[in-house]
């Protein structure tokens, strides 16, 4: 099938995703990923520490662990869709970071992403595909933050690449 042999133009892909996101906005709410990831974190923490999670106010007042939270299933769907795409196009294979610097950057980067999402209440997806198109003030604040952060991260990335 041609679709799985050639790389799709990202403008077409994102245009199609935007149209679908409008339908999602009408039915449940705009596309977001950070909220679902937070709920997964709560559920995983609950699995490991049990009822002790009730002693952490965040998991009572902000995100009460609930497996029926719809945003979780967007992320799981993305994983599923990506596996289907990768397997059908014969692009699935295990890859591991080779250098120690890569492991360090991914670890620090992952931590910063997690802390940043929770501090802001939004992720990059909500910023670009939800809040800003809704003309939400938070979208413009988040965009200024993410652009400054990406610029700062690029300086570090460049230094590591050159080093």
């Amino acid at each position: 099938m041609e679709f799985f042999r050639k790389t799709l133009d990202p403008v077409i892909a994102l245009g199609a995703i935007a149209v679908l996101d409008i339908f999602l906005f009408l039915l449940v709410g705009a596309w977001t990923v950070g909220g679902g990831e937070t709920m997964m974190t709560g559920l995983i923490a609950q699995f490991f520490i049990g009822d002790s999670i009730n002693q952490i106010p965040f998991w009572q007042e902000v995100f009460k662990p609930d497996a029926g939270y719809w945003k979780i299933y967007i992320s799981l769907g993305m994983l599923f869709g990506a596996i289907v795409g990768a397997v059908a196009s014969k692009e699935f294979f295990w890859r591991f970071p080779k250098r120690l610097s890569e492991w360090v950057m991914i670890t620090v980067g992952g931590l910063l992403m997690g802390i940043g999402i929770r501090l802001a209440f939004v992720c990059n997806v909500s910023t670009f595909f939800g809040l800003t198109p809704e003309l939400n003030l938070g979208g413009y604040l988040s965009m200024s933050g993410i652009i400054a952060g990406a610029w700062f991260g690029s300086l570090i990335y460049k230094r590591v690449l050159e080093g």
Binding site: G116, V122, N124, T127, I146
Partner: peptide
């Protein structure tokens, strides 16, 4: 938050 996130995603 998004400053931290933006830095993190590039790293």
């Amino acid at each position: 938050g998004l400053f931290l996130f933006g830095t993190g995603m590039v790293l």
